[in-house]
Design a protein around this nucleic acid. Structure first.
Lengths: 224, 224
DNA sequence: TCAAAAGTGTTCTTGATACACCCATGC
DNA sequence: GCATGGGTGTATCAAGAACACTTTTGA
């Protein structure tokens, strides 16, 4: 049986989140070609027939932003009929979490980080995709330890708290936050210190991913 | 710009859950054509270029099972290169929740309900899709009131409890469960009774969807 | 009268919340 | 020495967990 009828094209688009200066950001690419030439858009592109869609997402991310080995997870598939003015295109969206401090360069010169709170006008239905990505991140950060993907390998408890406050758009009590997070015993304290920046140095911690994997296996649930 | 290169076909597949005889079930269709002729598969089919993928999912569900006006939500997109032996096919999976008692007929004669715990061998990668759907249902049932989609309009607290026990694969304390669920004040008690079935009649309840919508708007979160 | 499911409260324990002061450093 | 963020403990309160017997009906 051969399928001879018009087919939609399939793309992947990636919502790439980073955290910097106490603010959640998203990586966008300025389009060099029509449609939406000059407009900002999510990095992405067409899926090839010899690669999985996961592979396509990773490849496009690498090609367009230089990022590799980052947290990358499927988000949602967008299939409105007229979402691309050229013709029918279905897009499988992904979201990525990157340690912005460790990837300061955006790779391509037409890429830039924007605060998620006030992004520029976006091409296609990318504003909707961004919104979906943001709400996924907000939901998931509370019951999976994915926040650490946005911080450097070594971080302070204040950095972690500010990350949560920024993502969840709340303020958290410092003592309660520390008690909660330390009680899970997933952070290992490093005996070095940091941030000689202007004030009292803060203790550095590292997230123990192996321990988390083992605990999760045993039925443990990360929460808040 | 025309996109002239080989394209994947796009399908939708629906994991249809029902609850009957204290057991969670899934609706499957026996394939009449190759490949996997005679094997059981999820209802689904090709997406047309003039319909959204949501519409395609609803249409296929209606055509293959006769179901309409049911809870239907996108699940995940499956894009392994060789998931269809014929050629490259990307499938956008959905899951549906149906009030099995109110749709006892399966519509087509080649459709049947199977316990999710022991489904038959499935065509394509449908076993993986089913597993993904099940884990989504297990996750979501705890923080959204979607369990009611699987029960009749009027139900008893015991039915509700058995539903949760079946989906979550645990046992729940009867008194604590009733206390918890009633404390949310989302159930309205109907002054009729039920189940003249062999024992003491039980109070019937109805889920108040309007009230839930209002509470949710105001920041309320359904939980467990 | 017996079997089967319905219905109902209290105690205890645990985890969440609220809250204020001293410390170390760079300037 | 002062401004800035780092670091710490307790008391109160609310919610979750554990737990057993009586009631109503049909057979």
């Amino acid at each position: 049986m051969g399928f001879n009828y018009p087919r939609a094209a399939i793309t992947v688009d990636c919502v790439v989140f980073g955290f910097d200066e106490g603010e959640l950001k998203v990586l966008l690419i300025q389009r060099g070609i029509a449609p939406f030439k000059g407009k900002w858009a999510l990095p992405g592109g067409f899926v090839r027939t010899d690669e999985t869609i996961d592979q396509a997402a990773g490849r496009e991310l690498l090609e367009e932003t230089g990022l590799t080995n980052v947290f990358l997870e499927q988000l949602y598939t967008f299939g409105a009929v007229d979402r691309d003015p050229r013709e029918r295109v279905v897009s499988v969206a992904y979201y990525a979490l990157v340690k912005l401090c460790e990837h300061p360069a955006t790779g391509a010169s037409d890429a830039a980080w924007f605060p998620v709170a006030k992004p520029p006008t976006l091409a296609f239905d990318h504003a909707e995709i961004l919104k979906t990505g943001l709400s996924r991140l907000r939901g998931k950060v509370r019951y999976e330890p994915i926040g650490f993907e946005l911080l450097p390998e070594k971080f302070t408890l204040s950095q972690l708290q500010h990350l949560y406050e920024s993502v969840l758009q709340t303020t958290l009590d410092k003592r309660n936050f520390r008690k909660r997070i330390l009680s899970m015993e997933l952070l290992v304290s490093l005996e070095g210190e940091l941030c000689s920046g202007a004030h009292r140095p803060a203790q550095l911690f590292r997230f123990d991913a192996e321990k988390y994997a083992a605990l999760k296996e045993a039925g443990f649930n990360f929460e808040l």
